[in-house]
Design a protein around this nucleic acid. Sequence first.
RNA 1: GCGUUUGUAGCUCAGUGGAUAGAGCGCUAGCCUCCGGAGCUAGAUGUCGCAGGUUCGACUCCUGUCAAGCGCACCA
Length: 554
Amino acid sequence: MNILSGMEQKIKERIQQAAHTAMGEGKISFETLPSFVLEKPREKAHGDYAVNLAMALTKQARMNPRAIAEALIESFDRSGTYVADMTIAGPGFINMSLDPAWHDQVIPEILAADKDYGRTDAGKGKKIQLEFVSANPTGIPHMGNARGAALGDTIATLLDAAGYAVEREYYVNDAGNQIEKFGDSLQARYFQALGQNVAFPEDGYHGEDITDTVAGYIEKHGDELLGLNEEERKEILVHYALNEKLGVIRGELERFGVKYDNWFYESTLYESGSVMKTLDQLRERGFIYEKDGATWLAATKYGEEKDEVMIRQNGTPTYFAADIAYHLNKFERGFETLINVWGADHHGHVGRMKNAMSALGKNPDSLEVVLMQLVRLFSGGEIVRMSKRTGNYIALGELMDEVGVDAARYFFVMRSADSHLDFDLDLAKSENSENPVFYVQYAHARIASILRQQEGERISANLGLLINPAEIQLIEKLAELPGMIAHAAESREPHRLCAYAHELASLFHSFYGKCRVLNIEPELSAARLELLRATKITLSNVLGMIGVTAPERM
RNA sequence: GCGUUUGUAGCUCAGUGGAUAGAGCGCUAGCCUCCGGAGCUAGAUGUCGCAGGUUCGACUCCUGUCAAGCGCACCA
């Protein structure tokens, strides 16, 4: 257990104890202890912690909150808590100040844990699956996919650090309608490339990448497909193109720092009969009926506004049918929690899918969807539309070429998923101090530089010498990491990592301006060097979780 | 029309029901004989969209309303 988290937990327990003790002594009365918070007050003058239990108890105890606070303080057992002083403030806060002796434990804890500092076992090894990006393999990843990749990967990293057993999965939509269209498009480009004047399907994939793919195929295999029938020709072209596209997608995502544990192919759901089996399960539960030659899901039976088609008149299952089977399959693989990262344009799908899981007897709360708002691209002050159909979009690869992986990942993770993101390409292209990632990386490089210059052997340090306010603020921020990670993981809010990294870097830069490290009294220098080592480890760990490098030099 | 996300400083955005609402950029004024100035210090800037409600206490929760984004297919 981390020093800070352990201390906070103990104080909360003692507060609860104090309430029960005070009731036992007849000082206050209540039926059930209301929930309360132990928080760090914004104002340093209010101490290290504030507890609001006295105010939360006013109704049940029918007493002035300050009188309740007094009773709680009297009954509070301070032994082993580092609590040095307790005062009543404002409407009834109990403010606590701590014995600074706890600071001495922070740096040794970090140095001992090193790359593992920040990790906790809060998740108790629970199996969680994160599915993200899952871009159609008919194109290459765009900006929306990039945001999903950065967010999904960082949430997975957070959950891993918080002690969950995480699996990253990519759902490959290699079946269904869009693959048909894909085949039609490829075939048209194939004919065109070989000089035949054929019309291109209106709802086909107009992207130039399709033309390139076909050109590549012809280079290798010539015009040998002309003699085949349409079905065989399209199947060969689709197979070739999907392989190529998935290779590109996988490569670009890996370059972006994202590696998947599993690539799940939609087509396997059809081959294994899962789609039909899932429909059978729904039918047994009375949610399936036939109408107009199609098979319907009676979603209105469980409160939806309308029923959904599962199998079309032409006999092919809908995407929704396959997706229900896919999610059921995830549960069958033993995951207790499923998290999907979806673009806001799919938000209508969230309730439908949860209700469908519910209809199949699964707990809908075990399926979570992190909805991210769409990315709007700006260039020269104008919106750049991204559309696979017009082929006019900025690809992930292009983004990485222009702004670099570090800046791109930090930029996407920095903002909460539900903020509507305007991505200014001109701003992102300019590599200057406007980009906050440099600020954090600079702090790391600066520490590395000092540690490089440090001469002589590392002597054991007296950490009690670190009493400058700048040093104390830095130490206290360092101590927050494990709790921050656990909280960010629980709330699926990776942007907290960026906020923390920036705060930590800021405290370091401030410390640097106030406290010299080298060429001062050896004992103090040794203590500050330990502080720098701990800060460097912490910065490096946080940046690593975001997917950003922690450079030794810049 | 129904659903959903957003609305906080000039701009981009943080903000566990708590005390005097924050950061970056930009702006103003300082700081390099000294460990990396991609930095530091200080300052100015607010009807937390609007109106009600809940409560000891609301930027935060609820209702309504206005504005913007995104959905509401036998597309995925």
